[in-house]
Design a binder for these strands. Structure first.
Lengths: 252, 252
DNA sequence: CGCGGTGTTGAAGGCATTCAATTGTTGTGG
DNA sequence: CCACAACAATTGAATGCCTTCAACACCGCG
């Protein structure tokens, strides 16, 4: 239950300096808090990195020497128990920020759930920019508050929901966040179509369940016609969002 | 399971203006980030409030018009599901801070778990102080990061631990935090003595369990000699902290 | 084609919940 | 001071949900 192996570390080719002014995620990312001049200052030190699915981006034990924006892909934030059980404590999509300020250590494992593109800043440069830009610090503060709310929302899912409600909550959450990011298609009759960013194993680790239980709940939702999803596939169509919300316990 | 009623609201006598300079919790509280002059500026607008156990301090639905430091007592941070199930998503002790900046709403219920003394600041005054004092904002940011880490730590407990491990984790956490605050007695042979800040019902809501399961796990820990606790009492002596850590799964 | 990885499905078992009854504690009023 | 009510905690028995163990199906890739 919840014991899976973490493949560690990362081949990472340095890419061309970030052309921030043309960056597609700028407004959504923390960079949206910076003026053109400030961004021009930071831009030369940014580096693109490509991370393969399953690779570890940041690690609890080691000192994190960079910060990053997610340009594309999905990142799992993971905590481990000494015996190997694991719990996903956060999910990060583009254009989310990755890293921990005010301390050298990132207190979790950040692992690529899919192939990921990162826009990375060296620690020192970013810290300097942070001191000069109170609005950047504030933006990060607001991000952290959003992370806190998300974590606490999920505590309710973990602590008080049944397996069925958990899986429905997961689909609801992914649909919402994917729609916000423009990665999902709106379907007639309020349907939503997207591809799950997580494997069954990851979903289990996110929901505090086993793979088998997750699979069974998918089967049930499929049988009920709430979702359409061919077996062995990560593509999902939510046919009836209201029914899903009903099942998730979010609205009664 | 997890359905309990929230008694709402608060008789609250206004007390004498905070004598911040002699305040016992100043250094631990966010006020520790303020100079004597700054504190003298804020001091006149502070008000002491006494809250009875079970009363709601802040509410999800209503606009919070004040911020507060906890001077004494324990506060539960709660989230509710529409059907009444509840999950405690945070515990606050003295000298913790209560409130949410950058927005008019506090997104949880804050409920007194015991009788509580608060040092309250009107929203407007505090916001003004915040704008003038970047170090105060930074202190709050660091608090929020600590809250986030605590929430994510607890997600592991909720998602991946058995009932026995959960109860052991709870006792461990309370012992640690109570010791830090000086509210617990060190006993010979590494023992720790304290009084549980939460009822069985609250512990259940914190651990995502039922009251009965919590009670049974207490009975088991008692039978094993890991703790000493007379039934129907909140007083606990942890006889063997190492054994407790073993049981909690925190160290294997 | 065979193999590893991922996902599905079945059957059995265990752990936490549910339902229920009892005990202990606290506070109120006679 | 004691009786009583209201509440909190404990304990027992039965149920059920999720896990565990196991086998199999599907997919991509060498």
């Amino acid at each position: 239950m919840g014991r899976r192996n973490l493949r560690v570390i990362a081949s990472n080719a340095a890419m061309a300096p970030g052309r921030c002014s043309r960056c597609g995620i700028r407004d959504g990312a923390i960079c949206g808090a910076l003026s053109n001049e400030e961004l021009a200052d930071l831009s030369p030190s940014s580096r693109m990195r490509r991370i393969g699915a399953g690779e570890t981006i940041m690690s609890e034990s080691e000192r994190a020497d960079f910060y990053a924006n997610i340009v594309s892909g999905t990142v799992k934030v993971i905590k481990l128990l000494p015996d190997g059980r694991q719990q996903i404590v956060g999910l990060k999509f583009a254009p989310d920020f990755l890293g921990r300020i005010y301390g050298p250590r990132y207190p979790y494992f950040a692992v690529a759930a899919s192939d990921v593109e990162l826009c990375c800043f060296p620690r020192a440069e970013f810290q300097r920019m942070l001191e000069d830009c109170p609005h950047l610090e504030r933006r990060l503060f607001e991000n952290t508050l959003a992370d806190l709310d998300a974590a606490r929302d999920w505590m309710v899912v973990l602590g008080r929901k049944s397996a069925r409600e958990k899986v429905a909550s997961f689909l609801e959450m992914v649909a919402k966040r994917t729609l916000d990011a423009g990665g999902a298609k709106q379907r007639p009759a309020g349907g939503v179509e997207f591809s799950s960013p997580l494997s069954r194993a990851d979903i289990a680790d996110y929901l505090g369940l086993t793979i088998e239980t997750v699979s069974r709940q998918f089967a049930w939702l499929r049988a009920k016609g709430v979702i359409v999803a061919s077996p062995h596939s990560r593509d999902v169509v939510i046919r009836d969002m209201d029914a899903l919300s009903e099942i998730s316990g979010q609205y009664s």
